Amino acid sequence: MSLRSKWDDLGERLLSAAVMVAVGVAAVWAGGIVFHVFVALVCGVMVWELVSMLDAKRDRSPYVLGLTAGVAMMVASEVPPAFALPLVLAPSMLGLGQMERGGVTYASFAALILLAGFGMIVLRDRYGIEWLMWLILVVVATDIAGYFAGRFFGGKLLWPRVSPKKTWAGAIGGWVAALLVGIGYVLLTRADAGLLGLSVAASMASQIGDIAESAIKRRAGVKDSSTLIPGHGGLFDRFDGMLGASVFMLIAAQLVGFPPGLPGVFP
């Protein structure tokens, strides 16, 4: 592959990324109901893409389950957590009766999508914009550094059978970028050095989310989850890393306390 062909999609990717970042940052900045609606829309679209990949022969199921997921996420964001959790899992149960194939995969990933969305809402509502931005920056830095390090250094593939473009150089580049984000937050806040390890672990979790989505696409025989975003595919393609990182944070915050060294809602 020539150097030119390695980078010929960069302009389109950057333009689409700029629009996505602008919309996402605006929603995160606004918080409250605006952010809740944004997360519900993203979750609904991701579930629509998931069903479309796993059970492409069904005409109505992607729309029905996507709408159900979006509505469930919206309602879950406005009720106490104890009542929100059944709503978060309800679309997974409903889908088991709607899918002709891939039902178990659908149920598992639909649950993860809505849990990740719920985790982002909890992070924004309880901790404030600065700590949700930390998680977003870790995921974005991991993705960008992984892209450039992988394209520039190349080398051994991470999992060639599932993802023929992801390399160990890209993975390590992502970890380094996440570490730098963590260092920046330690310097700017009162968080202790434990945030450094948490940043790298969240980076790894985002990469696992990315690889898991690649496995679904490989199984479905598609290149992208959809064609909604020029140069990037679908929302599932862009938010797969956030999916892994957000679910990871729901678990990790129970184990180590968050933010490290600062009084928080957890453990």
Results as ranks from 00 to 15, higher is better:
43 C>K: 03
196 L>W: 12
207 Q>A: 10
149 A>C: 14
11 G>V: 06
5 S>M: 11
178 A>E: 05
254 Q>P: 12
164 P>W: 12
9 D>I: 03
149 A>G: 01
228 L>F: 13
75 V>A: 03
55 D>K: 02
153 F>G: 03
135 L>A: 14
65 L>W: 00
32 G>I: 00
155 G>S: 05
115 L>M: 11
132 L>F: 10
19 V>P: 07
1 M>C: 08
13 R>M: 06
6 K>N: 13
254 Q>K: 13
78 E>G: 12
86 P>I: 03
203 S>E: 07
52 S>M: 07
39 V>G: 02
221 G>W: 13
238 R>S: 08
250 L>Y: 10
188 L>V: 04
93 M>Q: 00
203 S>H: 13
141 A>F: 14
210 D>S: 12
258 F>R: 11
247 V>I: 11
143 D>V: 04
232 H>P: 08
142 T>A: 15
189 T>W: 00
186 V>C: 09
3 L>S: 11
248 F>Q: 11
46 M>H: 01
244 G>C: 01
32 G>Q: 14
242 M>L: 15
174 G>T: 03
106 Y>L: 01
33 I>V: 10
251 I>A: 15
143 D>Y: 05
237 D>R: 08
129 I>W: 15
261 G>T: 07
173 G>F: 09
265 V>L: 02
199 S>I: 11
56 A>C: 00
129 I>R: 15
239 F>W: 14
209 G>R: 09
204 M>E: 06
8 D>P: 07
117 G>C: 06
49 E>H: 08
83 F>N: 08
243 L>Y: 09
205 A>H: 10
186 V>R: 14
27 A>V: 13
205 A>P: 10
13 R>N: 09
152 F>A: 15
147 Y>T: 08
104 V>E: 11
250 L>F: 10
262 L>W: 09
163 S>P: 04
111 A>R: 11
184 G>M: 06
89 L>N: 04
71 V>P: 12
161 R>A: 14
239 F>G: 03
239 F>T: 04
41 L>D: 00
171 A>H: 08
88 V>R: 09
3 L>T: 15
120 M>H: 01
152 F>T: 15
239 F>P: 02
56 A>I: 02
196 L>D: 03
105 T>G: 14
21 V>R: 02
63 Y>Q: 12
28 V>F: 05
244 G>T: 01
24 G>Q: 07
213 E>H: 06
35 F>Y: 13
47 V>Q: 13
160 P>C: 07
103 G>D: 00
52 S>F: 06
24 G>D: 00
99 M>D: 05
171 A>W: 11
171 A>G: 04
258 F>E: 07
180 L>N: 04
17 A>L: 09
202 A>V: 13
80 P>Y: 02
259 P>D: 05
248 F>R: 06
64 V>C: 04
106 Y>G: 04
248 F>A: 08
62 P>W: 06
45 V>H: 03
156 K>N: 01
90 A>V: 14
205 A>R: 12
140 V>S: 12
30 A>P: 13
89 L>Q: 01
97 G>L: 11
42 V>S: 03
165 K>C: 06
